[in-house]
Amino acid sequence: MMARPALARLSPFNITSLALGLAFLYLPIVILVIYSFNASRLVTVWGGWSLRWYMAFFNDEAMLSALAMSLRVAAVSATAATILGTLAAVALTRAGSFHGRTLFSGMLYAPLVMPEVITGLSLLLLFVAVDAQRGFWTVTIAHTTLTMCFVTVVVQSRLGSLDRSLEEAAMDLGCDPFLAFVKVTLPLILPSVVAGWMLAFTLSMDDVVIASFTTGPGSTTLPIRIYSEVRLGVKPEINAICTLIVGSIAVVIVAASLVSKLSSRQGENAAPL
């Protein structure tokens, strides 16, 4: 509703640049989606509409188990990263200037700028050194270390803008510091915690580099599986998988925005003015 008057005021130049930008971002995806319905065996040749590559995917045991593995790794590592990342954010914003604070925050942000190859390699060396069986847990731990800092960044910005006196008021009204966090702080930072979890989940689902260093036989994640398939030549089945991923992301985003809209409207209805 807000966008309509703004759009009306756009000049032809603005509209053109907007269209070009959107095309740059989304045209490849649109082409991917269209080709996923291609009946032809050749990726670049159009052979009419078909769902055969979707059927192929749902019958591809190896691909399905890779998807299941990816979902499990993403869910567990995102949850662990959210808990650890939120605690780190709380420590950084609420514990005052404790000894080694700068070092701690620096170390926390290191994975943000560290090349993934180095993170992956060093984790591999660690797992080899401690003689850990590489598989589900090593990938999960690796993804937790990668995504935790993202959660911290997201949660920390929200915590920083949160009025400190809210927690003090909770304590004043009889909460010990832990209860004050649970009753007041956590509900208020929950949107950013959820956002952090979703970010961590997507990052984990995406990752090829770190996963390929830390995974073992029998625990191949979806991106690794896709990557190895593509190396042998792009199969139309890959298009179908990618379309499904894009589709599910779109559904999640629409659902999330609907939920947030609905909850804010409920708040308005609760007290008619």
Partner: peptide, 22 residues
Amino acid sequence: VPPHRRPVNMMFQNYALFPHLS
């Protein structure tokens, strides 16, 4: 004595009302 064990209450300058509660 920490704040939650004092028979003292405070009204904060910015009121510090909990925005998520009625």
